[in-house]
């Protein structure tokens, strides 16, 4: 059996930027350096949960909004059964892979859509653990 459910933390699978709920969340961000998209809040009874939207903003300094543009881009009707073409703006629509190094030297990779979101992740800094590490 390959699975290690001790660790059943694998089930949540979220990398852990552990913040205590609820008042210490902001304080924890200062300690951890923030970790957008990969934040978990620890409850007083020993539980781990995802942050609320407000906590997420406090911990990461971002609201998690999708930067993908919904403004109407230029659509071009093609002939010959080719339908409609639309050129994408790569700075807005591309998926960016971002890596951050934590104080323990471990690398954690995350994704962002659009250059601005990726840049925010880079500037936010320190990661937590990936789900495998959290399970050990």
């Amino acid at each position: 059996m390959k699975i290690n459910w001790m660790a059943g933390l694998t089930a949540l699978g979220l990398a852990v930027c552990l913040a205590e709920e609820p008042k210490k969340a902001a304080e924890s961000k200062v300690k951890q350096g923030g970790q957008p998209g990969m934040v978990i809040v620890k409850t007083p009874d020993g539980g781990l949960r995802a942050p609320t939207a407000e906590e997420y903003q406090v911990l990461t300094g971002q609201g998690g909004a999708n930067l993908r543009s919904t403004a109407a881009p230029q659509q071009e009707v093609l002939g010959g059964g080719k339908g409609v073409r639309l050129a994408l703006d790569p700075a807005v629509t591309e998926v960016f892979s971002v890596v951050t190094k934590g104080p323990d030297g471990k690398l954690v990779m995350q994704e962002a859509v659009g250059a601005k979101a990726a840049e925010r992740l880079v500037k936010a800094g320190a990661p937590g653990k990936d789900k495998q590490e959290a399970a050990q």
Binding site: L88, F96, V98, E119, P127
Partner: peptide
């Protein structure tokens, strides 16, 4: 401590 590794997407 952090870097964009790369990006990709449909053109």
């Amino acid at each position: 401590t952090a870097a964009v590794l790369g990006s990709a997407g449909a053109i």
